[in-house]
């Protein structure tokens, strides 16, 4: 009677499968894992360590912590970071000191590997949690991270 037991076992396994999907169907109201994205923008919060983009935090005096040591530029595998620097006179010591003119960050080339942030001796750059990085013009992806007129915070040495 292998023929009939085959049929019955077959039907049994099919019904077992249907009970699983059926269970999810009945609980579909609360079980849905879909995120209705643009609607939940307010509540959607990324984790602290989320690697969205590289940012350079500035304090209230418009000062950052980048000394222009270029370690990040060397660490970057893709040439994402370009630092345009100059030498200026330190107001306190009167010595010549390296300072950044522009910290150029090409988001379009960034693979979010995190080596630049890992290597930064003064923690001048860190991860931003912004994940909406799409733009209409790709030149907008090339960013200057240091604010205009900003300068390095006093006492930061590499």
């Amino acid at each position: 009677m292998g023929y009939f037991s085959n049929i019955f076992n077959g039907i049994k396994t099919l019904l077992t499968g249907m009970s699983i999907t059926g269970k999810y169907f009945l609980n579909s109201r609360k079980g849905a894992i879909t995120q209705q994205y643009p609607d939940n923008r307010e509540t959607l919060k990324m984790f602290d360590r989320f690697r969205g983009e590289v940012i350079m935090p500035h304090d209230e005096n418009n000062e950052h912590a980048c000394t222009g040591c270029q370690k990040c530029e060397i660490a970057c595998p893709n040439g994402t970071i370009e630092i345009i620097w100059d030498r200026g006179i330190d107001e306190e010591t009167g010595k010549k000191k390296k300072k950044i003119d522009q910290f150029v960050y090409h988001l379009s080339m960034c693979t979010m590997c995190g080596l630049c942030i890992d290597v930064c001796p003064t923690d001048a750059i860190e991860w931003g949690q912004n994940f909406e990085n799409s733009v209409y013009d790709r030149t907008a992806l090339t960013r200057v991270l240091n604010e205009p007129e900003s300068k390095v915070r006093a006492g930061i040495e590499d």
């Binding site: 984790f47 360590r49 989320f50 979010m112 590997c113 995190g114 890992d118």
Partner: peptide, 24 residues
């Protein structure tokens, strides 16, 4: 992964000598 490593797929959490960060 995202909470600890910062990324979901291409995590790059290892560095020669250990891990990039401690676990969350």
């Amino acid at each position: 992964f995202e909470e600890t490593c910062g990324a979901r797929l291409t995590m790059n959490y290892n560095v020669p000598g250990g891990l990039m960060w401690d676990i969350h």
